[in-house]
Amino acid sequence: MKKIAIFASGNGSNAENIIQYFKNSNQGTVVAVFSNNSNAKVVEKAKNHQIPVVVFPKSELNAGFVLHELHRFQPDLIVLAGFLLKFPEFILKEYPKVINIHPALLPKYGGKGMYGNHVHQAVLENKEKETGITIHYVNEHYDEGEFIFQKAVNIEDCKSPEEIAQKVHELEQRYFPEIIEKLIPNI
């Protein structure tokens, strides 16, 4: 069974969805949740599922602590699920199987500062007819890793970033765990 570590910074709805999806799986299991925010709801959600949580200050992501903790859990796959910090290259060298979900159809609306409602607001302001999700490998640049999966949704009826966010969130909840499961045999 493959071991999955999740990195998240906020609410944790995608992280919790992945934890639940793999609870009864014979392919993979979530072994830890890492967060740079001790007040993030993901911390409580992970603990409610008896998943070990590693909380670290932002400064420790680029120091040895996070890498040391990853060595402790030995994940086969690292999943960024609403993790807002740039993932360090030195960790990618030791753990090259890192994936991320982005709330837009990359390469549009990607890069530094493009997350959550910032993305949805930009999509709305540019009068896009569709948006969606992109699941991709993580490399040394924001949102530039090889694409694994994209799914679009029509947003012509959306009048606010929140309405767009709802449609994108539905895609995330449906497809993120499934795509992780499809990747597992190849890692």
Rank of each mutant, 00 (worst) to 15 (best):
V98W: 04
S59R: 15
T134V: 09
I148Q: 02
F56E: 02
E69Q: 13
V55T: 08
D76L: 04
H141S: 13
V119I: 10
F73E: 04
I164K: 00
V66P: 09
K159A: 15
K167H: 02
Y137A: 00
Q121D: 07
V153P: 05
A165C: 06
L70R: 05
A63M: 10
V153F: 08
K97R: 14
A63H: 13
F83M: 01
K108S: 14
I148A: 01
K167A: 05
H102V: 01
V54I: 05
N117A: 14
E130M: 08
Y115A: 04
D143Q: 08
S59T: 14
D143K: 01
V138P: 02
P103D: 00
E156Y: 11
K159C: 12
N126S: 13
N62M: 10
P88V: 01
D157I: 02
E94R: 11
L84G: 07
V53F: 05
A152D: 01
H102Q: 09
P52Q: 06
G64P: 05
H68E: 15
P88C: 01
Q150R: 07
H118Q: 13
A63Y: 05
Q50C: 14
Y115I: 04
I135T: 01
I164N: 04
N100W: 08
A165S: 08
F90Y: 14
K167R: 10
H169I: 05
E130C: 07
E60V: 02
E130S: 10
V55E: 06
V55I: 13
H120R: 03
L61T: 06
G111R: 09
E94M: 11
K58T: 10
P161W: 09
Q150L: 05
V66H: 04
K112L: 12
I51S: 04
N117D: 13
V53M: 07
N117L: 15
E125K: 10
H169A: 12
E94Q: 15
I51Q: 03
E146K: 15
H49W: 12
R72G: 09
